[in-house]
C-alpha cells in the first residue's frame, strides 16, 4: 500500500537496497494470512475434508457396523447400484416433485406479495415487518406447530374449519398425496419470507419514474408491470429461484419431523434416505454415493437454471 521500494532504498546504504522493502512485504502477507486463517481453516473443515472423504468413501464398501471387517475398494459399484435401488429412485422422484411444485409456488406467492407490498400506501411498515418474521423461526418449530398441531385431524383448526364448510375429515399425514401437500405448504409458508424480502429490496431500487412514464403512454397497470417492472426484476428473480431450488433439493428438516418419509415411502427425500442409511444404518459408503448424486443433481440443475436465466436476460 504505502511501501514503495524506491523510497526505502534512498535512505539505505546501497549494498542492501531491496532488503527492507522485501522484509516489509513479507510481514504484510504474513498479517494477511493470519487474518484469513480462520476462514481457510473453516473452508478446509467444512468443504475440502468432507468432499474428499465422501468421494473416497463412496468408492469403498465401508459400513460402520461391519466391525473389524477390512474396508475394500469397490470402484463405482455404489454409484451404479443406486440406479437399480427402488428406495433411491422413489426418493429421487419425490424430491423432484417437491422441487418442481414448491419452487415456482414460492416464487409466485413471493412475487405477488412483494408487488402488493411495494404498491401499498397504508400500513406498509407493519406488513414489511410481519412478512419477514418467519425467517427467524426454526424449520422444526414451523413443522411442529403448523404441520403437526394445526393440520392434526382431531385437535387442529384446519380440519375443524373444513368440517364446518362441509368437507369430510382429511387425514393429512396418513394419505400419500396430502402428506406431500402438507410438506409443500410448510415449505411455501416458511420459504416465501426470503423471496418477498429480496424482491421488495429489488423493487425499491427501481426508479419510480419508469412506471409513471409508462402510464403517461397510456399503459394499464397490468401491462406496465409485465412489460417494464417484471423484466427489470429478472436478475433478482433468477437469484431467488436459484437459492430456492438449491434449498428445496436438500429438503430434510420438515420431512423428518413431520412424516419421517411416510406414509410408506410417499414423502421419502434423498437427504432423508442418506440420513437413514448412512447415519442410522451405518452404511457410510452407499450413503456417500447417494449424497454425491444429490450434489451432482443440484449442481446440474442450478447450472442449467443459471445458464437459461443468463440467455433470457441478455
Amino acid at each position: 500500500m504505502s511501501s514503495r521500494p524506491g523510497v526505502a532504498t534512498r535512505a539505505r546504504p546501497s549494498a542492501v537496497p531491496v532488503a527492507p522493502a522485501r522484509g516489509r512485504r513479507r510481514k504484510r502477507s504474513y498479517v494477511r494470512l493470519v487474518l484469513l486463517l480462520p476462514a481457510f481453516v473453516s473452508l478446509a473443515f467444512v468443504t475440502i475434508y468432507p468432499l474428499g472423504f465422501t468421494v473416497y468413501a463412496s468408492l469403498t464398501d465401508w459400513n460402520l457396523f461391519n466391525f473389524g471387517a477390512p474396508v475394500r475398494f469397490v470402484g463405482f459399484r455404489n454409484w451404479i447400484e443406486l440406479w437399480r435401488d427402488q428406495n433411491f429412485l422413489i426418493a429421487f422422484k419425490n424430491t423432484a416433485v417437491f422441487v418442481l411444485i414448491a419452487t415456482p409456488l414460492t416464487y409466485l406467492v413471493g412475487l405477488m406479495v412483494a408487488v402488493a407490498l411495494d404498491t401499498a400506501t397504508v400500513g406498509k411498515r407493519f406488513f414489511r415487518v410481519l412478512f419477514w418474521l418467519p425467517l427467524m423461526l426454526s424449520s422444526v418449530l414451523v413443522t411442529v406447530v403448523i404441520g403437526r398441531m394445526m393440520f392434526d385431524p382431531f385437535v387442529g383448526p384446519v380440519d375443524s374449519v373444513l368440517d364446518r364448510l362441509g368437507v369430510p375429515q382429511v387425514l393429512w399425514l396418513a394419505n400419500p398425496r396430502t402428506a406431500m401437500m402438507t410438506i409443500i405448504i410448510l415449505q411455501v409458508w416458511w420459504g416465501t419470507a426470503y423471496t418477498i424480502m429480496l424482491l421488495v429490496a429489488a423493487l425499491e431500487s427501481l426508479p419510480p419514474e419508469l412506471n409513471e412514464a409508462a402510464r403517461v403512454d397510456g399503459a394499464g397497470e397490468w401491462r406496465a408491470f409485465w412489460e417494464i417492472t417484471f423484466p427489470l426484476l429478472l436478475p433478482v428473480s433468477s437469484a431467488v429461484f436459484l437459492i430456492q431450488i438449491v434449498d428445496a433439493w436438500k429438503v430434510f428438516d420438515i420431512i423428518n419431523v413431520l412424516t419421517g418419509g411416510g406414509p410408506g415411502t410417499a414423502t421419502q427425500s434423498i437427504s432423508l434416505l442418506v440420513f437413514q442409511q448412512g447415519v442410522q444404518g451405518g452404511n457410510i459408503s452407499y450413503a456417500s454415493a447417494m449424497a454425491w448424486m444429490l450434489t451432482v443433481t443440484i449442481a446440474v440443475v442450478a447450472g442449467t437454471v443459471y445458464w437459461l436465466s443468463r440467455r433470457w436476460t441478455d
Partner: peptide, 21 residues
Amino acid sequence: FLLLGQRMFPAALLALPMLIM
C-alpha cells in the same frame, strides 16, 4: 466467491464425514 460455494453442498453430504471425525 469461493467462500460462498460451500452453500451449495447438502448437509446430508457433509454430515457423514463429520460423524466419523
